[in-house]
Design a protein around this nucleic acid. Sequence first.
DNA 1: TCATATATGTCAACAAGGCTGACATAAAAA
DNA 2: TTTTTATGTCAGCCTTGTTGACATATATGA
Lengths: 181, 181
Amino acid sequence: MVDVKSGPNPLFLREEELRQAIELLYFAYRGFTAEPDQILADYGFGRAHHRVIYFVGRHPGTTVSALLEILGITKQSLSRVLGQLVRDGFVVQRPGTHDRRQRLLELTETGRELERALTETQRVRLARAFRNSGANAVEGFRTVLYNLMDEAHQARFAGLQPEREAGREVGPKSGREAGRR
Amino acid sequence: MVDVKSGPNPLFLREEELRQAIELLYFAYRGFTAEPDQILADYGFGRAHHRVIYFVGRHPGTTVSALLEILGITKQSLSRVLGQLVRDGFVVQRPGTHDRRQRLLELTETGRELERALTETQRVRLARAFRNSGANAVEGFRTVLYNLMDEAHQARFAGLQPEREAGREVGPKSGREAGRR
DNA sequence: TCATATATGTCAACAAGGCTGACATAAAAA
DNA sequence: TTTTTATGTCAGCCTTGTTGACATATATGA
């Protein structure tokens, strides 16, 4: 018997290590979505609306198909949520200039306000966690999450791409550091 | 003083830093649940079943109310899912010895097999991510996730509690280190 | 012992947000 | 001009959450 760290097989995580990571992810993710969910409920919206508001806010002028790609849901599912957001005045659609079949999406001022309110709660929570953890831990947090996601999505963090330092660590650079270049 | 890194306001994360963390969590969590979801579908189960199987496997002999506490759902929601798992032979209930009102939960051998299959996919993914990230990054990952969750849940990681080194870092110790004591 | 509280379960109804399948329209592209 | 693409829509289904009301067995305190 034989354990993981100094043990022979680096691909096998010890039970405790594994389960700790599983539960950390579960509880952290839950906590991270709790406050936004509260706010959204006041508008009759759910987490699906949040995702749309977030990504449209992040990429104003994005197309419907690009949004479908990011969210990984069907157009029927998106349609229901997006339709509500448009009807309720949080998102507007304008025809594409090059391709007039497209409906480019952006937030209205109301939409931006809601987006800010939602994101603010997460900013506060992240700031607290980062402050309690230290800069080095934050880098590790980024690196592991980056390596945890599907490769297909890693590309989205392209400006912050893997660097192999001493051939070991692979992960995104922080926004701060990237901005310094 | 100062901040996480070295900017002026420790409670305010720069836009890029904030959004990067939000998206890392989103995509990592999605990737992390993808394979189990696939397997569960073969049994006609969903993510809710996974949670029950996971936590019952983790805490054999747990009570229904303890499980409700962990999952943060209503007993009616749990009942539907738990009922299926019992009927389908993945979970058994036995009366509590001290308190015969309780139904202590545990996995059957079939249940344990499914639990292992589900967890194995996550073990592989975590092992790959940890290997690509390095031990230091993994510690940071744990620390930040610990600090990100609600305090109520932090208690669950009690054996691995905060230590304040030089009054800065707060977070769980790894299972490995805790195990060494 | 009796009354109350607790642990658990059940029935019914509803909502959010996924899914599939089929079909429609406008515009681009071949 | 025909075909493909971007988008939308209707209809129906599933999972998994919710609330509210009520039921049963057991434990516990007065």
